[in-house]
């Protein structure tokens, strides 16, 4: 299977063209956010406070990186378990979020919201923090500095390897692949 080069931001048309099972290499700007940042973003939205980033067609990467060693851009930066963000995700999809990247399955509620917004979910290899660190070309703190590793960062990535796990039609590798190898 070949790999598909994709560039962020991902328009609705870009997203709809991706199919579950596609192996991709992502380049461009992506944003980091995990548990605490999601909680704050959605709590703020409920209070009428705007998001610190324009999410339209953007990709959120679920990661809490290690501190950068001197001379490095960032520390190890692999994905965390996406399911913990499920509660907050539909609200962010309502605000234009186009794609997410992490590890593990998503809830039915998230998948339904993904279908309505034609969003995609990428899986990348858990624990591959050192390799992914080497693919991050710049990192800029955007918001919530007080959250430390959980702050929102803007990353520029190059050829970041991922797999389309759930596509905009709701096809889900967690449902389809296991059966093929079950004995």
């Amino acid at each position: 299977m070949g790999t598909i080069q994709i560039n962020t931001p991902l328009t609705k048309a870009d997203r709809s063209a991706l199919k579950a099972g596609d192996h991709v290499r992502i380049s461009g700007v992506i944003y980091t956010a995990r548990d605490a940042a999601h909680k704050r973003m959605t709590e703020n939205l409920a209070k009428g406070i705007e998001l610190p980033v324009e999410l339209k067609d953007q990709l959120i990467y679920y990661v809490g990186p290690c501190p950068a060693k001197p001379g490095e851009i960032i520390g190890s930066a692999g994905p965390t378990t996406s399911g913990r963000m499920d509660l907050y995700t539909p609200e962010l999809l309502n605000h234009g979020l186009g794609a997410m990247m992490g590890k593990g399955n998503r809830s039915e509620m998230v998948i339904n919201a993904m279908i309505s917004h034609q969003a995609v979910y990428f899986g990348c290899v858990g624990g591959a923090g050192a390799l992914f660190q080497s693919l991050i070309k710049s990192s800029e703190l955007i918001a919530y500095e007080d959250l430390g590793t959980e702050a929102i960062r803007k990353l520029l990535v190059e050829d970041f390897p991922a797999i389309v796990v759930i596509d905009a039609q709701g096809n889900n590798l967690y449902e389809t692949e296991r059966k093929k190898f079950k004995r």
Binding site: S76, V125, G127, A128
Partner: peptide, 18 residues
Amino acid sequence: MQKNLMVAAEKKIPICQD
């Protein structure tokens, strides 16, 4: 996963961010 282990050892950075 195997590539990641090589990068971690080479750069002396954590294998996983957690």
